[in-house]
């Protein structure tokens, strides 16, 4: 039934991988530019967020499309799931450490709300 499709599957997967790599590379470079251009630490966190989330997952998706059904696919899925769960955790750890160390954004719109840790942050 799907025999006539067979010659088209590989080129279609190639095109899909190309799209994933190009969009992923775009976001990767945009996130890195953001880490250079954005003015202070709190803004750079979001630039790093672009690198850590969409760019990474798109690259891994592109590699999954090229790997076929094998053990390589499973390893790639494991890497993707692992990065999906750990990257927000480490971002939160960096942000929380900087907050406790008393680093605040430049030109902030409003004063930070009082929290229980204010006296520690000094």
């Amino acid at each position: 039934m799907i025999d006539w499709l067979t010659p088209y599957i590989d080129p279609a997967l190639d095109v899909a991988s190309w799209i994933c790599f190009i969009i992923g590379g775009f976001y990767l470079i945009v996130g890195s530019i953001g880490m250079i251009r954005l003015p202070d630490f709190w803004a750079r966190l979001h630039g790093a967020g672009v690198v850590d989330t969409l760019a990474t997952e798109l690259f891994i998706l592109g590699m999954i499309l090229q790997s076929g059904w094998s053990i390589v696919t499973i390893k790639l899925v494991l890497i993707g799931v692992f990065l999906f769960f750990t990257s927000p955790t480490s971002t939160h750890a960096v942000a929380n450490a900087a907050w406790l160390a008393g680093i605040r954004p430049k030109n902030m719109k409003q004063q930070a709300p009082l929290t229980g840790n204010q006296e520690k942050s000094s």
Binding site: G31, S32, M35, R44, A48, V51, A98
Partner: peptide, 11 residues
């Protein structure tokens, strides 16, 4: 700051 560097190392 130190935290910029930690963030860069993580990325």
């Amino acid at each position: 700051t130190l935290y910029d560097r930690v963030l860069a190392v993580n990325s």
